[in-house]
Design a binder for these strands. Structure first.
Lengths: 347, 347
DNA sequence: TTGATTCATTGGAACGTTCCATTTATAGAG
DNA sequence: CTCTATAAATGGAACGTTCCAATGAATCAA
């Protein structure tokens, strides 16, 4: 049982018979102290059970080496992967990032950001919650804390963004489905208060237009970005009188839901209805049937974001280049075999 | 663009025409200040773009209101759910927990714990990494920081534990399989350096013994606790000359892997080989076939752990009761229909 | 021997807050 | 009108560190 009050550098100094300043230098690994002294001090540090007080240090040092990662939904494996990619980079830089979850709730996000600022973070990587108000990051900006957005962006904001090429990904996916012979297509899931949503839907629409699909043959159903949301989307779409035969889903979770709902209706995903997801989470390849999906290199984007952050901190700037990551359509079973020239029936 | 240097309570004081002490009282919501003064001060706080410096405050206050959650594998949805359960409690207590991931790496864990201590956490909820050395939490203990273990425990440690009844869960699962008529059983995945592993395997073994399964008919294959690990386990087990017909898996990820490997071999999980998982993650019910699994109420345990932590902090103690959560076998398709009295063939 | 030069160590002030002991203002009792 | 009680606001010390300027010791050139 160590002494009640926690040890400070003064205790170490007394124990080692040096001054507090010397101890401080040792702690910072300064080359100025004599090796033997350093050894003596380090021993004392062990003996008294010293714990460095970073709060006190930051009071003087101004810059803090704590980095926060604010994630909108940790239970979504996609974002968990993102977080892991970032961590890899930070780990090799010797810094421990703190993760906070906002559960897609702007109010919670506000609390989280406030708390992190009070903690004196050196920088923040954020995947903003749905419905984040434009001013939410204003305080961060005026405080001069570097921020980068990962995966998601805010409508009008000068904060740098690291995200995949959503537009192109959706374009590729739609083209793939059309190439398979589908003529009535759907876009399932997501909500229009997300910029990503418009990017993906936009790419989808453009491909349809470019490849001769009439606007009337496009079904768009907004919905929760979850399995349950996907199930609901399919039900809605199939209740129409000329239902789609293929769908691009806002993300993989929605796609999984759509596939479940298809099975419930006695339809086989892939054979009877083509499904394409977005994000290509690890489960996509293991699903039955395996899910065709737009791969975005999640962990890679995470690493990129982390590097950008480190650079911003180092160069004391709050600006950085956006980075739009390459995407790549991974074709598996869920988008089915080629459709032989069936009836077009288009209006 | 706000002024360069960050604002302090002195700036607020000057702006509002009061003393720094008054500002401090307002910040703490003291009832001693005249309402009009409080309003005036609060306005000044806004005007100067003040950010509270928690580090400086903690220097005096001793207790910090930061709680850390140290998770061994965030990409496992099981632990993500646990984290979310804890967060729910902390949120309503008005505190923002910081999550850190150790990626199942004891060295990383050491860094993470050190960093959190330096940050002056008020308490820590930890799901320790595999292979954590017995002394890893010694510093925390001598520093008097309250710690609770969630889901996992260390071999000999006085730190309170919140975990499911692993022994009973495994017992129920094994009994279920035996009740279905299986006589050659396997236990797949997990590694023996985890206490949980012994608890689960122990329950499994006891049920087998109690219900008349010969030790020779039990196959135990250790392996990674992941889909890939599960696939490997199945391959190993099936290469024997009297392979098992049913398996209890260390967790759901392993079970998913086992089912994939079965399919690869042309066997249908459920019909040709019974599979039971452990943890009952959300995907279990959506899988094809739906996975029979031992449900442990993950989020509930998370909440419990969080409450325990809050209580420990409040009562300034480092001790608390262990809590072993009830478990419950959820029977779905993967454990298959009853096996008609086939050959027993037991030795 | 002296002065300059380098190396190792040191005391003091500062960082932004809280808390205690005081002070000042206001009101009520005698 | 004085005295006491209460309410509101305040100055100063302290928390544990870092950094700067200063000190002391050792080495070396002249």
């Amino acid at each position: 049982m160590a002494s009640r009050a926690k040890a400070t550098i003064f205790d170490i100094a007394r124990e080692a018979g040096v001054s507090k300043s010397t101890v401080s230098l040792v702690l910072q690994g300064s080359g100025l102290i004599r090796p033997e002294t350093a050894v003596k001090v380090r021993k004392a540090i062990e003996d008294v059970g010293y714990v460095y007080n970073r709060g006190a240090a930051n009071l003087r040092k101004a810059h803090s080496n704590v980095i926060g990662m604010v994630i909108n939904d940790l239970t979504n494996p996609f974002f968990a992967e993102l977080a892991v990619g970032m961590e890899r980079v930070f780990q090799s830089a010797g810094i421990v990032p703190f993760i906070a979850n906002t559960a897609e709730n702007p109010v919670r996000q506000e609390e989280v950001l406030k708390s992190l600022m009070e903690q004196g973070v050196a920088g923040l990587i954020v995947s903003p919650a749905r419905g984040t108000t434009p001013g939410a990051f204003h305080r961060l900006e005026t405080a001069g804390v570097p921020v980068v957005f990962a995966m998601r962006r805010l409508p009008e904001s000068r904060i740098p963004v690291i995200a995949p090429d959503n537009h192109r990904g959706a374009w590729l996916a739609a083209a793939h489905l059309i190439g398979k012979g589908h003529r009535r297509l759907a876009f399932f899931g997501g909500s229009s208060d997300l910029v990503v949503y418009h990017e993906r839907l936009g790419g989808f629409r453009e491909a349809c237009e470019a490849l001769g699909i009439a606007a009337a043959d496009i079904t768009v159903v907004e919905g929760e970005t979850s399995r349950r949301g996907g199930m609901a989307c399919l039900e809605t779409a199939m209740s129409g009188n000329e239902p789609p035969t293929a769908a691009l889903c806002f993300n993989d979770a929605v796609a999984f839901g759509v596939m479940l709902a298809l099975r419930k209706r006695g339809l086989e995903p892939g054979a009877d209805f083509a499904v394409v997801g977005f994000d290509d989470v690890v489960e996509a390849q293991h699903y039955m049937p395996a899910l065709t999906s737009v791969s975005v290199d999640t962990a890679g984007l995470g690493e990129r974001a982390a590097h950008a952050m480190l650079k911003m901190i180092q160069s004391r700037t709050t600006r950085a280049e956006d980075h739009i990551g390459a995407v790549n359509l991974v074709i598996r079973e869920s988008s089915g075999p080629d459709r032989l020239a069936e009836t077009g029936d288009a209006a």
